[in-house]
Write a protein that binds this DNA or RNA. Structure first.
Lengths: 221, 221
DNA sequence: CTATCATTCAATTGTTTGTTTGAATGATAT
DNA sequence: ATATCATTCAAACAAACAATTGAATGATAG
């Protein structure tokens, strides 16, 4: 229980400290969607470029992200370690302990509850049966850089205009970036209103990829 | 991607910030062993009582620990959420990214590698076969407050004097508090030197309990 | 009901962290 | 080469945090 023990805890504390910033967590979530440049990430997170750069470097020092150069730009992608697992453990703890968070998620989508999310396991089973249409409601570029096999892409803001592309009979499963991403909630609301049988996936594309399941698309990460 | 999203990340960041202190992580690890009073925890972590108290209250606010009163003292125990899972995800990430930590663990025990740790799964299988003797090398009081079923307790500092209590033929599996606790490493060294067939469990009592496996002892947590 | 003990609270000080600004890299394209 | 662009670095200030001290709770024992 002496000194080296303390050093180990210092290391772990440093990792935790890197996650102890809403801005960095937000950057991580965006990076989890696929490779992004500093400029793009700064814009997505609403930070100045210099500030975003410094946050990103902290994330890199802690091993949460890695970089590669592509011409003038530096692209950030997720690290190879169990980053998503760690974030998901954090979220699980938050869900467990804080009714607050559950309320935020539920209230801001003005909806009774959690809209009957479907698990990855159930989705895989249904996909095996061929009884499901997968709908990716993220923006086109995110879809292009990687998506679930067989999914069709209709960005959420085009959904109402493009209902014709959806098979009327089949059950639809909508997904987006992750459990706290609102897009798939919105998709369910829209489609329910139009009479579709639709549910949302309880996790997002990054979780799917992290679980080692097959993906389609040109993501170089 | 607007404002409520940011609130959620603020919540998660606050949780991470609570873990971003070696002292608090150390307190958590001690609490993971079973209920402890503030005074005891302060002593174990080498902190002043007032300081320990403040750290403990932060841990409680974040839901990592809970308290109950027992006469004059306030006892702290782990929260009901996935605390151990979160800590273990942190450690996994640290293991993955930082050769530093691996070296600390390996070097301070002046030993070649990780001494062929056995997993919980394999241990359960061997226990089913009845081909293994479980050895708990933690101090007596920790053993009394909870231990693996069928384990015998010989605290590490009494081990050399009490070798007679160990069956000479059987394979021994030693365990202690967790993957970064040195006791079981030391036990393996001692026993190997005496010709015993011994390995260490790759995780500790708290992980065993958290995995929902049965335990013996009087821990009220 | 008073004394005692464990724990918590409140106020202070020194250190660390986040953000901004402006300049310095490092790579490409003319 | 030189200009241009994306990213990083460096310095500086404000905000948040940890540890210490001494006083205030809240419970038990006499």
């Amino acid at each position: 229980m002496a000194d080296p023990q303390l050093q180990i805890f210092e290391e772990l504390a440093e990792l935790a400290r890197t996650l102890a910033s809403a801005q960095r967590l937000m950057l991580l979530e965006h990076i989890a969607q696929g490779e992004r440049s500093v400029e793009r990430l700064a814009e997505l997170a609403g930070l100045s470029i210099a500030n975003a750069s410094q946050h990103l470097q902290q994330l890199r020092r802690a091993g949460f992200v890695e970089t590669r150069r592509d011409g003038k730009r530096v692209l950030y992608r997720l690290g190879t370690g169990p980053v998503i697992g760690l974030l998901s453990a954090l979220r699980q703890h938050a869900e467990h302990n804080r009714a607050q968070i559950r309320e935020l998620v539920a209230n801001r989508l003005d909806r009774p509850e959690r809209l009957e999310a479907i698990s990855r396991e159930e989705l895989l089973f249904r996909m095996g049966e061929g009884s499901v249409t997968l709908l990716d409601v993220r923006p086109q570029d995110e879809f292009a850089s990687g998506h679930l096999p067989g999914a069709i892409n209709i960005p959420i803001d085009e959904l109402e205009r493009r209902l014709a592309e959806l098979p009327a009979g089949a059950e639809i499963v909508a997904y987006c970036r992750g459990p706290y991403c609102a897009l798939s909630f919105d998709a369910v609301t829209v489609l329910r209103g139009k009479g579709f049988a639709v549910r949302r996936l309880d996790s997002g594309f990054p979780d799917w990829k992290a679980a080692g399941l097959s993906v389609e698309g040109r993501d170089p990460g």
